[in-house]
Amino acid sequence: MTRRTVSAVRLLAGTAALATLLSATGCGSDPAPTIALPSGASIACAGSGQLLGAGSTAQANAVDIWKTTFSAACPNVIVTYGGGGSGAGVQQFIQGKVAFAGSDAPLKPEEITATAQACPGGHGVDLPMAAGLISLAYNLDGVDHLVLDAPTISKIFNGQITDWNDPAITALNPGTTLPATGIQSFHRSDDSGTTANLTAYLAAASAGAWPYPPSKTWAGRGGQSANGSAGVAAQVKQVKGSIGYMELSFAQSNGLRSAAIATGAPQPADATAANAATTFAGSTVAGTGSDLALKLDYTTERPGAYPIVLVTYEIVCDKGNRASTLDALKAFLTYTISAPGQQAIGTVGYVPLPQEVASKVQAVIPTLS
């Protein structure tokens, strides 16, 4: 394994070439944000050829940054990431089509069992890699700050609250004039880890207002659907009186406002990376062995803790990885979980993982075989 330091000149060149890279690597319709990449990063290169990944669209902006920086340092490896949603990524991993899958929800027991066919002598494990928050992004003229809570969000997305001046919304927003505009909600059409995390929050925190179990597949009544995080963001941006859920970076890149969440704390929590970090600080590892699936506290009432958070996992084989891609996979993941890798995605709305979690991931990566 060789260590390469990316110069500022090469990183700027990588930024200029980003559109070409995206079209060549098939990362789907989710556009990468315009950012300034780090002025330099030390990356240990290894392996060669094409490294394939697929899945979560919530992490697509993060992967675009990572692969551009990594490719500038390690030109012998071409990282290709296709979106399609967490469900599609997990299925491609199980079928042995990709070296890693991005998923905003950890593997279920039956999925772990199914990964054995792609991981001879082992199985898939969840490595937390990109942390973020789910924005309730809205398009409502004249309303610069909106507060919602879990019961109200549940009823909006289940078709029970249909107007912006509904008493339940008005009560959460004293002093704000809410228009008598109909609400148009947008949800994901594809199986999505973002949906799984939002519905996990609603199921845990809505006191029964959300009647469905957490799931990657949307179960609410009413509303319209769109494909991927970018699709939902595009619809909310276009339709007045609309609301949708998406990873924060997509709300930011589309100039959308995000609702604050009333949790029972003295003040509602704004949708900021710092407030999401407060929630992540209370997370614990629920997985065993090399699996580092996290348990998130969706019902937190800590002051300043934004509760609707998600972690995107890179799903890889603990054993049985293909020899042709193993070295490149380990090198790429080592960069993404490094301090420079986490700081790079922090510039576009993601939340750097707590060091306690990052250290655990850094310890597992060398053991992959």
Rank of each mutant, 00 (worst) to 15 (best):
A323T: 08
F332Y: 15
Q252K: 10
S206P: 06
F280E: 06
S185Y: 06
K108Q: 13
L51F: 04
S324D: 15
V361H: 04
S215A: 13
L12E: 05
S7F: 11
N61H: 01
S290H: 12
A331H: 06
Q267W: 02
I315T: 12
H187A: 15
G96W: 06
S253M: 11
A230R: 06
S253Q: 13
P340I: 14
A32M: 03
A363E: 08
D141M: 11
D191F: 02
P75T: 05
R302F: 03
V348H: 08
T284R: 11
P303Q: 05
V364Q: 09
A358Q: 01
H187S: 15
Q224R: 14
V364R: 09
T25K: 02
A203W: 00
A116T: 14
K67W: 05
S29K: 08
N139R: 08
S103Q: 04
R322H: 15
G175N: 12
G47V: 13
Q91Y: 09
L146S: 01
K240D: 13
G320D: 08
I345E: 07
A88I: 10
N227D: 13
T57H: 06
Y138W: 03
L11S: 09
I35Q: 11
P354G: 01
H123Q: 15
P268T: 07
A344K: 03
R302H: 02
Q355S: 15
I161K: 05
F250A: 12
T20K: 08
A293Y: 03
I156F: 00
I94M: 10
A99M: 14
I337A: 12
P211C: 08
S42N: 11
L353R: 01
G241H: 02
S206I: 06
D191T: 12
L353G: 06
A105H: 10
T336W: 02
S39Q: 13
E301I: 13
T336A: 15
E111S: 02
G341F: 01
A180E: 14
A118I: 13
D64S: 09
T25I: 07
S229C: 14
A344F: 05
L51D: 07
L292S: 04
A262N: 14
T195Y: 01
H145P: 01
D297E: 02
A305V: 00
Q160I: 07
Q267I: 06
K97F: 00
I345G: 07
P303V: 04
I112W: 04
K67H: 05
T367Y: 00
K155E: 15
G84Y: 03
M129W: 07
T288A: 13
G55W: 09
A344W: 09
K237P: 05
K237Y: 10
G264V: 05
A273Q: 13
A54M: 05
L52K: 14
L256G: 01
S229Q: 12
A286D: 09
A230Q: 15
P174Q: 06
Q160V: 10
G320P: 03
K216D: 14
R302N: 05
A130T: 13
G40E: 12
